[in-house]
Nucleic acid binder design. Structure first.
Lengths: 143, 143
DNA sequence: TTCCTAAATAGGAATAATTCTTATTTAGGA
DNA sequence: TCCTAAATAAGAATTATTCCTATTTAGGAA
């Protein structure tokens, strides 16, 4: 079940529509948990056994440079990817590798207004990301 | 010129005082530009030719787990380190690898108050870090 | 529809960052 | 001064990522 909108996204950015790109973009948009390139590749191999890890890395880089996906900084030395590009922030769990999205328009506005007013010397702000570090409490420990 | 306070920091955290630890901590506190483990090692070798890169990594991890230094998330796949542990944020340059510290007590307070009041469901906030992404302007391009 | 070409891909080698292993050394308490 | 657990050096191993090259392919032109 190829998602038609995935094809549209590729076309909109003037990219060649290849089965690999469709599959990769489909996976990253549908996996909600900020997967690594390796995780993405494992998933892809279920339906696409010959895909190459090099292609996955290259394609993710291409998507990122077009602004289709985002890289997520992580504590470990493995890069993670995020199919959500509307502005949002991240909750980092101290006890696990878990990283959740955090949407908060109030927070966005608060920071936007502050940084616009504040004027950091010799620096032009283009974007910002808040990493919120802490713990998921009992009710929500597994996911 | 061994910095006495470096020794004090090690002692305060109940760590064995070794020449390697003194040298490493001295370098990371005095280098202000968020060096990589490799950069730290190069510096150390000037005065300490036999230090092992493995020791540098292990020691930086130890320091980080004791809260003496911080890791800094970076765009590339190389971890960087920060000898400054008072709360602060980072300015990431889009055009280079440069990462500057950004101190702003007003911002800290703003975010603290907001997150304290806001209550993110099922998540207990311990800390936060703001990544401010943008460009250094002409006057300040080289550094 | 067929052909053509630049771009994309597969597969594997190469590189770079980091961790692991083990024998040796050492800090600091007894 | 001695003893032992902890720290270190050196290099091997691992892991993530990039690079290389021959082959394939998407999509525009004829």
């Amino acid at each position: 079940m190829v998602n038609r909108s995935v094809v549209k996204i590729l076309a909109k950015h003037g990219m060649k529509i290849t089965p690999q790109r469709i599959a990769i973009l489909d996976v990253i948009i549908n996996l909600q948990n900020h997967p690594t390139a390796d995780t993405i590749c494992d998933y892809l191999r279920l339906s696409y056994p010959h895909i190459s890890i090099g292609t996955v890395y290259k394609t993710l880089d291409t998507f990122e440079s077009k602004g289709i996906i985002n890289k997520v900084y992580s504590e470990t030395d493995t890069m993670r990817y995020d199919g959500v590009i509307t502005q949002h922030h991240h909750l980092y769990c101290i006890d696990s590798e878990r990283i959740d999205d955090y949407y908060d328009d109030g927070l966005n506005k608060l920071l936007n207004d502050y940084l616009k007013k504040k004027k950091i010397p010799d620096f032009i702000v283009e974007d910002f990301k808040l990493q919120i570090i802490g713990r998921f409490n009992e009710k929500n420990k597994t996911k």
